[in-house]
């Protein structure tokens, strides 16, 4: 595990704390890690684009 100290805008903090209060995350730190994971997952460019190209082929020529 890595420890990183960051500064981020108050507005983002307010949104994050609303999610914590609503039960989406146990702590703000957990929310930050989840946001980072989602970003990195969604931006694994090679994997995402490979899947989309397969999807284009299916969309155009699939049988179902």
């Amino acid at each position: 595990m890595k420890t990183v100290t960051i500064q981020y805008p108050d507005q983002l903090d307010e949104q994050l704390r609303k999610l914590v209060a609503a039960g989406w995350f146990k702590t703000p730190e957990e929310g930050v890690v989840e946001a980072l994971r989602r970003y990195l997952s969604g931006h694994s460019v090679e994997l995402q684009e490979k899947q989309i190209l397969e999807d284009v082929e299916w969309g155009l020529h699939g049988r179902d």
């Binding site: 997952s41 899947q51 989309i52």
Partner: peptide, 23 residues
């Protein structure tokens, strides 16, 4: 991408927004 990878690994088909539009 991660969810699709897991689904494919266990034998499901996965498709996203672009594929659905073209379908």
């Amino acid at each position: 991408a991660a969810a699709r990878t897991v689904a494919l690994a266990v034998g499901f088909q996965t498709h996203g927004t672009i594929g659905l539009i073209l379908r």
